[in-house]
Amino acid sequence: MSEAAPLQGYAFTLSGEALIARGSGALYWPAQRTLCVSDLHLGKSERIARRGGSALPPYETQDTLQRLEEEIDALAPDQVICLGDSFDDAAAAGALDGPTLIWLQRLQAGREWIWIEGNHDPGPVGLGGTHLADMSKPPLSFRHIAQTTATGEISGHYHPKAAIKRTGGRARPSFLIDSARVIMPAFGTYTGGLHSHGSVLGSLMGRSAIAVLTGPVARAIPMPR
């Protein structure tokens, strides 16, 4: 990465650390060369089919990995943190086909890879990398579900989304950011979302929280409540 090219995205600080919320829905920590993504939900269609729901082709796993690869290519991180619910369930992780496993290994090659556990994938997945319940990397900490008392915390789980109402724009997956925490949008394809004006997110986030909408340009607005 050339030093002259400024990193695209919304730049902000959390506990004094400079971070970038990318339009893709990934979070980048340049000082540590750490890339963080949340809620990949790999194998979602496979799980729905297994439970007898309507059969969706499994191509959404490829789509999610494709976008993840683009971020890794663009940023060349030393460390990748997947912030939980990386797999739709433990069986989905086991059911990934050969080419997908090789693809994952290629992405993991030459960098540290952390799987933080989420409510969908609580156990180890046996796909390389390190498996952790949560991770402290002072002054920041990474876990799947936000804790109300934490500070400098990066979490996922809620799949937040928000919209710029006045221009009639649609709700887009969004980062929610305040002085204590970042709640990440879901990176996975075909994952639903929770409006930031829901009561859970409203009570988690401080008064001056902002929402950073993902899209071609990451755009910050006061968090809609």
Partner: peptide, 8 residues
């Protein structure tokens, strides 16, 4: 996007 940028 231009309108959104202004509005944001």
């Amino acid at each position: 996007a231009r309108l959104e940028a202004q509005e944001a």
